[in-house]
Amino acid sequence: MTSRNRLPLAGVLGWPIAHTRSPRLHRHWLARHGIEGDYISLGIEPRDFESAFQSLPLLGFRGVNVTIPHKETVLRFATKVSDRAALIGAANTITFREDGSIYADNTDGYGFLENLRAGAPGWKGSDGPALVLGAGGAARAVISALLSDGAPEIRLANRTRSRADFLADQFGAKVRTVDWLHVEDAMDGVATIVNTTALGMTGQQALPFSLKRAPRTALVNDIVYAPLITPLLEEAQSRRMRWVDGLGMLLHQGRPGFEAWYGVAPEVDEDLRAAMLAD
């Protein structure tokens, strides 16, 4: 029996991995579409990654999601890398193709844009300048997505200024760094504000500034989804600004992989959101 004749199997690789909600997401879609297959989480230490990853096709895996700390490492083992994964320098979605090749993609930016489009109908990256907080892997995906959607300028701020400077240099003239102490000033005239940092997550401190300088027309997004409504989003609500939570980014980024592995294009709807938020 070849791997393609087995029940379709996929999963997520990371270390640690106990926090992931990806199995709940994909199993919901599997059940909805009556697909006999599974999606499992695999905790792989960095030292074991190469041997574990290369064994997956032999075990019947059609693909995997990849999360911290393996998103950059996995590119070394890909036969083909999508343009967006190459630009971001990381992959989160791997497909083991029937011809033996390995395709690496990054769907984080896709998930980010689809989440904002669904949560704030009519929003476009081209609406005006964007302020992005943070300079990690998620910020890379968000910046790439905003630029692809026509953002005329991105103001990038990070607690460690040098990391923001490095990232801005990689993306070119439309991305400029602003000092963390001057973030409120940088909100003047923006159309979109995105927090990609861990600040505001459960157990973390809140962001150390307010939205008082931001236009009331700006869209505020926090890619954090634990808690679903972060202090940043609470303030946006109180100021009657448009806002979008971070759960939809997780849901939408999973769609391309699910379709590639299981042959069905899944939907993101309220039933899925409720299932993901259930205890």
Rank of each mutant, 00 (worst) to 15 (best):
F96L: 00
L113K: 03
S126T: 05
A191Y: 00
G203Y: 09
I44M: 10
P16F: 11
R255F: 03
I94F: 02
Q237L: 14
F258S: 01
V178L: 04
R97H: 08
Q204M: 14
L251I: 06
P121F: 13
R76I: 01
P266S: 05
I229A: 03
V132K: 08
P256M: 05
L211E: 00
I68E: 05
S51Q: 14
L167A: 03
G150S: 06
A141G: 15
V183T: 10
P57W: 11
L113R: 07
M187W: 04
W243D: 01
G137H: 04
T202P: 07
A52D: 04
V268T: 06
S162C: 03
I223C: 02
N221M: 11
R24Q: 15
T202R: 14
W180T: 07
Y225V: 00
P215Q: 13
R6T: 06
R239N: 10
H19R: 09
K124A: 12
P46V: 12
W261D: 01
T2V: 09
V81W: 11
R216L: 13
L30H: 10
E267S: 13
Y103T: 00
A18M: 00
F61N: 12
P8W: 10
S55Y: 00
G257I: 00
R21V: 10
L131R: 05
I223F: 00
D99N: 15
E270D: 15
E270N: 12
G248P: 02
K80R: 15
A275R: 03
T20N: 05
D127F: 05
D83G: 14
L232V: 05
V66N: 07
D99C: 09
A274Y: 01
K174E: 07
G37V: 12
S3K: 11
I44A: 09
L42F: 04
L181R: 14
W180V: 05
H28L: 07
F61G: 11
L232Q: 06
R273F: 05
P256V: 00
P256K: 04
V64Q: 09
S82T: 14
R27G: 15
N106Y: 01
P152F: 01
H252L: 04
V178P: 01
D48S: 15
E270Q: 15
N115G: 08
